[in-house]
Write a protein that binds this DNA or RNA. Structure first.
Length: 190
DNA sequence: GCAAGGATATCG
DNA sequence: GATATCCTTGCA
């Protein structure tokens, strides 16, 4: 579970979709060019937030996962809103692009995409460096909320990495709770 | 199917 | 310093 505390109150959601990016050899990872100013935090200790911007308008949240010197991270692609759905809706409304026409959007779809997770929680690149394992952090991970059987987890190729060479383009490193309403994309990808 | 939008990495 | 590209989304 991912928890966010700020002026807007408490927002929390169950992580229902993630992608793994592993090491400099992963041609789809930001670490593929080695250490840069942007990906520096990936080379630090695990449990730290890495938030970067794509397409000029969306900030995406990742969790650094391996020991210092090993650049790996998990991209948080979707949440099932559990707490503070109203605050999530308000935050998205205030977000230029992700705020378009969400008036009638179902509550379970408020964070159904990597750019929408950060928009719903009010996160941006300044949240990079947050210790997600510190119970005192305004943004943190808690749990586990329970276990899942293998057949409840669907593994697919990662999204939006067509630029990468094989096998990185198609390794099944996107993991989603099978059939979950709050997962991103079309039903076919769930 | 495509535009919006700006930072990033690379090249000169 | 210029330019091609990008871990996306909503609307035509």
């Amino acid at each position: 579970m991912l928890v966010r505390d700020d002026d807007a109150g408490r927002r929390a959601g169950r992580i229902v979709e993630v992608e793994a990016y592993v090491g400099e050899s992963d041609r789809a990872s930001h670490a593929r060019f080695g250490p840069t100013n942007r990906n520096r935090v990936m080379y630090g200790p695990p449990g730290i937030a890495y938030v970067y911007r794509v397409y000029g308008m969306y900030d995406l949240l990742n969790v650094v996962t391996e020991p210092a010197g090993q650049p790996a991270a998990v991209l948080i692609r979707a949440l099932e809103p559990l707490d503070g759905a109203d605050a999530m809706r308000a935050a998205r409304s205030a977000h230029g692009r992700a705020g378009a026409g969400i008036g009638r959007l179902a509550a379970n779809r408020l964070a159904s995409g990597p750019g929408l997770v950060t928009a719903a929680l009010g996160l941006d690149r300044s949240d990079t460096g947050t210790d997600l394992c510190d119970p005192a952090s305004a943004l943190r991970l808690t749990g586990p909320a329970g276990s899942l059987a293998d057949n409840e987890i669907l593994a697919t190729p990662r999204i939006g990495v067509d630029y990468a060479a094989e096998p990185w383009r198609s390794v099944p490193w996107r993991f989603v709770i099978a059939g979950h309403r709050s997962a991103s994309g079309s039903p076919r990808l769930r």
